[in-house]
Write a protein that binds this DNA or RNA. Sequence first.
DNA 1: GCCTTTCGCTACGCGTCGTAGCGTAACCCC
DNA 2: GGGGTTACGCTACGACGCGTAGCGAAAGGC
Lengths: 208, 208
Amino acid sequence: MCRSSSRSPGRTGGRPRSAAADAAILEATRAALVELGWSKLTMGDVAGRAGVAKTTLYRRWAGKNELVVDAVAVLFDELELPDRGSLMADIEGVVVQFAALLERPETKTALMAVIAESTRDEPLRERIRTSIVERQKRLVLAGRRRAQARGELPESPASAAGTDDLIFDVIAGAVVHRALVSAEPVDAEWVQRFTALLLGGLSAAART
Amino acid sequence: MCRSSSRSPGRTGGRPRSAAADAAILEATRAALVELGWSKLTMGDVAGRAGVAKTTLYRRWAGKNELVVDAVAVLFDELELPDRGSLMADIEGVVVQFAALLERPETKTALMAVIAESTRDEPLRERIRTSIVERQKRLVLAGRRRAQARGELPESPASAAGTDDLIFDVIAGAVVHRALVSAEPVDAEWVQRFTALLLGGLSAAART
DNA sequence: GCCTTTCGCTACGCGTCGTAGCGTAACCCC
DNA sequence: GGGGTTACGCTACGACGCGTAGCGAAAGGC
């Protein structure tokens, strides 16, 4: 996750990295994102908030991009998919959760910024993929399997893996676009209309 | 669009702003985005490329954000929706076009960056909405009307305006997410699968 | 030909970047 | 409990981009 994991693993002895400092830095980064946003966030400011020296930050993260990815990634692990009884209810539930997560200023401001930077930074893109994107596909996987167990979707349709990726891009993309680009509220009515659209497409695909 | 439009309109006399300089600056901004990306793009560099003084940039744009929005907005006007004979073909066509536009480095890198900044900058968000988002909803509107004329969609379904917005968020969001977040290719197979999903949802909604 | 506005140019103070060097503190191993 | 090793806080530094001010010159309207 952070630079410390890329140190030579066979080493011994020496003063270990302070885990408390790691936590304080990531927390300070999120706080700074809330107050300052992306462009006005500085490494020196984060260091001051966390009560550590600026050099300590640079010993662990290469720069602002990597630091913010790690600070924000854990927020996405809050997403859950409890069994709400039907595929429709499950989808609506996760959409509402995701929209609420994107409403938080540290999330919305950081997510788009690091994605923008990742278009010119291949290692950063890979970091985002592994730390955020791939981890949350678990939600789609769980939802599909549960719907299959209920009989709402056919067992193992052709090329299920590609379908999971497609569903993920549609759900996450639509919610992000609605919330951040169109800048209109993800309210109950929109969620219901979107879910109905997606569900209609899924059942239509199941029929063929 | 640029600051010049917000000057006192009733003025008279004086040396007029150079339209050639405007064009050169916007072109230089796109070139700089391709080479440097967002974070390494500087106002001084753009001025140098455009062959104008740095002060000239600041006379017309408040900063990097506003400049880049104007430089990128015109690229989205290239999108067209020729009649391809069916709703399915029309959707596939516009998705392919949009994906190609997002493949261009100046587009992908700038779009996400200005959206990120807009989460903390209300005027910038409004500028993006009027310059980019609202203008491209014309594509959804044209596609729906054409499909209705063909009999593929029912005339004036309940709350068509909200549906147009929903379709726009789903299409644009899914393509952006696939291309920039998941960072996987928007190839012919994906386009067909996505279009089938969307089309299934639309026809399912039309049946109720 | 006068007035107004823009233009290119130079220079400036300010803040952030990312690094280097130092002395000190914390920990592991023997 | 030393000795070795590594992290830490602190300070200082050069480099660079920011955004503005002031100047003389150029370009157009009336």
